[in-house]
Protein backbone atom coordinates (compact mmCIF):
# COMPACT_ATOMS: atom_id res chain seq x y z
CA UNK A 1 0.00 0.00 0.00
CA UNK A 2 1.01 3.60 -0.37
CA UNK A 3 2.00 5.60 2.67
CA UNK A 4 2.95 9.21 3.09
CA UNK A 5 5.12 10.22 5.98
CA UNK A 6 7.71 12.74 6.99
CA UNK A 7 11.14 11.46 7.84
CA UNK A 8 13.61 13.97 9.25
CA UNK A 9 11.50 16.82 7.85
CA UNK A 10 11.40 15.37 4.35
CA UNK A 11 8.18 14.01 2.86
CA UNK A 12 8.20 10.45 1.53
CA UNK A 13 5.46 8.81 -0.48
CA UNK A 14 6.24 5.11 -0.79
CA UNK A 15 4.56 1.94 -1.96
CA UNK A 16 5.30 -0.74 0.59
CA UNK A 17 4.28 -4.22 1.61
CA UNK A 18 1.85 -4.12 4.51
CA UNK A 19 3.99 -6.45 6.62
CA UNK A 20 7.14 -4.36 6.30
CA UNK A 21 8.61 -3.35 9.64
CA UNK A 22 9.51 0.28 10.25
CA UNK A 23 13.19 -0.60 10.78
CA UNK A 24 13.37 -2.22 7.35
CA UNK A 25 11.51 0.67 5.75
CA UNK A 26 13.92 3.21 7.25
CA UNK A 27 17.03 1.24 6.35
CA UNK A 28 15.66 0.68 2.84
CA UNK A 29 15.36 4.46 2.45
CA UNK A 30 18.97 4.87 3.52
CA UNK A 31 18.52 5.82 7.17
CA UNK A 32 21.24 3.38 8.13
CA UNK A 33 21.86 4.73 11.60
CA UNK A 34 18.91 2.55 12.61
CA UNK A 35 20.43 -0.71 13.81
CA UNK A 36 18.98 -4.15 14.48
CA UNK A 37 20.41 -5.87 17.54
CA UNK A 38 17.73 -8.45 18.30
CA UNK A 39 14.44 -9.80 17.01
CA UNK A 40 12.53 -9.58 20.25
CA UNK A 41 12.28 -5.88 21.15
CA UNK A 42 14.87 -6.25 23.91
CA UNK A 43 17.94 -4.27 22.91
CA UNK A 44 16.87 -0.70 22.07
CA UNK A 45 19.26 -0.38 19.14
CA UNK A 46 16.52 0.47 16.64
CA UNK A 47 15.04 3.33 18.67
CA UNK A 48 13.60 6.18 16.58
CA UNK A 49 11.02 8.87 17.30
CA UNK A 50 7.51 8.98 15.93
CA UNK A 51 6.01 12.41 16.51
CA UNK A 52 8.80 12.95 19.03
CA UNK A 53 8.04 9.84 21.09
CA UNK A 54 10.59 7.02 21.20
CA UNK A 55 9.59 3.70 19.66
CA UNK A 56 11.39 0.49 18.76
CA UNK A 57 11.27 0.51 14.98
CA UNK A 58 11.59 -3.31 14.92
CA UNK A 59 8.29 -3.60 16.75
CA UNK A 60 5.92 -1.62 14.60
CA UNK A 61 4.81 -1.80 11.02
CA UNK A 62 5.95 0.81 8.54
CA UNK A 63 2.33 1.47 7.53
CA UNK A 64 1.63 2.76 11.03
CA UNK A 65 3.75 5.86 10.38
CA UNK A 66 1.38 6.98 7.65
CA UNK A 67 0.79 10.73 8.08
CA UNK A 68 3.31 10.81 10.92
CA UNK A 69 6.70 12.33 11.49
CA UNK A 70 9.64 10.00 12.02
CA UNK A 71 12.99 11.16 13.33
CA UNK A 72 16.19 9.15 13.09
CA UNK A 73 19.68 10.12 14.18
CA UNK A 74 20.31 11.42 10.66
CA UNK A 75 17.69 14.08 11.34
CA UNK A 76 19.25 15.47 14.51
CA UNK A 77 22.92 15.50 13.60
CA UNK A 78 23.73 18.70 15.48
CA UNK A 79 22.44 17.26 18.74
CA UNK A 80 24.10 13.92 17.99
CA UNK A 81 27.41 15.70 17.60
CA UNK A 82 26.87 17.76 20.73
CA UNK A 83 26.13 14.75 22.94
CA UNK A 84 28.42 12.48 20.95
CA UNK A 85 31.42 14.55 21.95
CA UNK A 86 30.67 13.80 25.59
CA UNK A 87 30.47 10.08 24.82
CA UNK A 88 33.69 10.21 22.83
CA UNK A 89 35.49 12.01 25.60
CA UNK A 90 34.62 9.14 27.94
CA UNK A 91 35.58 6.55 25.31
CA UNK A 92 32.09 5.21 25.86
CA UNK A 93 31.03 4.67 22.27
CA UNK A 94 33.35 1.62 21.94
CA UNK A 95 32.01 -0.44 19.04
CA UNK A 96 29.37 2.21 18.43
CA UNK A 97 26.71 -0.21 17.26
CA UNK A 98 24.31 0.64 20.08
CA UNK A 99 25.10 4.36 19.93
CA UNK A 100 22.37 5.60 17.55
CA UNK A 101 19.46 4.00 19.43
CA UNK A 102 20.99 4.95 22.75
CA UNK A 103 21.49 8.57 21.70
CA UNK A 104 17.92 8.81 20.36
CA UNK A 105 16.69 7.75 23.77
CA UNK A 106 19.05 10.08 25.69
CA UNK A 107 17.92 13.05 23.62
CA UNK A 108 14.28 12.09 24.16
CA UNK A 109 14.98 11.84 27.89
CA UNK A 110 16.51 15.29 27.85
CA UNK A 111 13.28 16.67 26.38
CA UNK A 112 11.06 14.75 28.75
CA UNK A 113 12.72 14.74 32.19
CA UNK A 114 13.58 17.87 34.09
CA UNK A 115 16.71 17.55 36.22
CA UNK A 116 16.61 13.75 36.33
CA UNK A 117 18.32 11.88 39.13
CA UNK A 118 20.91 9.22 38.39
CA UNK A 119 18.32 6.56 39.16
CA UNK A 120 15.74 8.04 36.85
CA UNK A 121 18.34 8.26 34.07
CA UNK A 122 19.13 4.56 34.52
CA UNK A 123 15.45 3.67 34.53
CA UNK A 124 14.68 5.73 31.45
CA UNK A 125 17.50 4.09 29.51
CA UNK A 126 17.25 0.57 30.89
CA UNK A 127 15.93 -0.74 27.58
CA UNK A 128 19.11 0.27 25.76
CA UNK A 129 21.58 -2.58 26.01
CA UNK A 130 25.31 -2.19 25.54
CA UNK A 131 27.74 -5.11 25.75
CA UNK A 132 31.01 -3.17 25.46
CA UNK A 133 31.11 -0.39 27.99
CA UNK A 134 29.51 -1.61 31.19
CA UNK A 135 27.33 1.54 31.09
CA UNK A 136 29.43 3.57 33.53
CA UNK A 137 31.09 5.68 30.83
CA UNK A 138 27.71 6.33 29.23
CA UNK A 139 26.38 7.58 32.56
CA UNK A 140 29.37 9.87 33.04
CA UNK A 141 28.80 11.27 29.56
CA UNK A 142 25.08 11.84 30.16
CA UNK A 143 25.66 13.63 33.45
CA UNK A 144 28.29 15.91 31.97
CA UNK A 145 26.10 16.57 28.93
CA UNK A 146 23.05 17.47 31.01
CA UNK A 147 25.10 19.64 33.31
CA UNK A 148 26.71 21.43 30.41
CA UNK A 149 23.54 22.01 28.44
CA UNK A 150 21.11 23.15 31.11
CA UNK A 151 21.90 23.19 34.75
CA UNK A 152 21.73 19.47 34.58
CA UNK A 153 20.93 16.52 36.74
CA UNK A 154 21.38 15.69 40.35
CA UNK A 155 24.28 13.37 40.77
CA UNK A 156 22.79 11.77 43.88
CA UNK A 157 20.50 8.80 43.64
CA UNK A 158 16.99 9.35 44.91
Amino acid sequence: MQIKCTINNRIFVEDIQVDMLLIDFLRHLGFLSVKRGCDTANCGLCTVWIDNKTVLSCSILAVSVNEKHVTTLEGIQDEAIEFGKFIASEGAEQCGYCSPGFIMNVLAMKRELVNPTEDSIKHYLSGNLCRCTGYMGQLRAIKKFLNATRGGCLSESS
Partner: peptide, 10 residues
Amino acid sequence: KLDAMSLVTG
Protein backbone atom coordinates in the same frame (compact mmCIF):
# COMPACT_ATOMS: atom_id res chain seq x y z
CA LYS B 1 38.89 7.23 19.43
CA LEU B 2 39.64 8.16 15.84
CA ASP B 3 36.29 6.82 14.64
CA ALA B 4 34.27 8.17 17.57
CA MET B 5 32.34 10.92 15.83
CA SER B 6 31.29 8.80 12.88
CA LEU B 7 30.04 6.14 15.27
CA VAL B 8 28.07 8.49 17.53
CA THR B 9 26.45 10.23 14.59
CA GLY B 10 25.28 6.92 13.15
